[in-house]
Design a protein around this nucleic acid. Structure first.
Lengths: 117, 117
DNA sequence: AGCAAGTATAACCACTCGGTAATATACGAC
DNA sequence: GTCGTATATTACCGAGTGGTTATACTTGCT
């Protein structure tokens, strides 16, 4: 097994950390259908202007989004669609997890029924 | 586009946060080839016992690993191999990112050369 | 130049996080 | 029971995070 260099691990965890926030996930999600300026993002995801701007800064620093200026507006767009693949993978995993929980609950219930007089 | 419920976003970000740390990635990586007890993990990933134990706690709370007791030892194992798919996706994305940077540097250099007398 | 709109930044606060050192717990051997 | 080993937990600290409010910056318009 490869030793998985410290640098690589650091970069992976940075990127994951960049995504690991509900507000930022909302922003990424709303950018899924094309670039949008801050105002549009703001009305779609809610929250204060300063807060959204800060989260956009985090996303930009992390390399998850890019932006360009057009007049007085600044348009943000997804820099790497891999984000969505990651989200999908996590969602699938969560679904499996939940269905496992359900099965265990079912099994537990069945066992209780056997034990019951 | 689906509104992507607040709960789901919270769970996704929790899971990402659970992975978003170099030490935890190292632990997950070392568990890739089967379950290991804390001592084994400890010697493979380094760091203090308390620290590794705490990170293992985080991984367990997040639902990324499971554990079982065998005598005095406690064996941990990956609960959901989706972790590796996520890492692979991030790595691929990083590689693309880096190669883009390289191209831009190359392009920039070429331009400079043109400008030079 | 001055003003307004869009966006970013600074200062601050409560809170979480990653780390360490020390202590507690659980188990097996004796 | 005591002792030693394996692991978890506690208490603490410095650093970072997510949020708010207020302020600054940048651009277009007049």
């Amino acid at each position: 097994m490869r030793p998985a260099s410290e640098q690589l691990l650091q970069r992976i965890s940075d990127r994951l950390k960049g995504m690991a926030d509900p507000m930022r996930l909302r922003i990424l999600h709303t950018l899924q259908d094309g670039e949008k300026c801050v105002n549009e993002i703001l009305t779609e995801v809610g929250g204060s202007q300063a807060n959204v701007s800060k989260h956009l800064g985090v996303l930009k620093r992390t390399g998850l989004v890019e932006c360009r200026r057009e007049g007085v507006s600044i348009y943000y767009r997804i820099e790497d669609p891999a984000v969505f693949a990651i989200c999908r993978t996590v969602c699938d995993s969560l679904e499996r997890h939940v269905s496992n929980e359900m099965q265990e609950i079912e099994a537990g219930r069945a066992e209780m029924m056997v034990g019951a007089s």
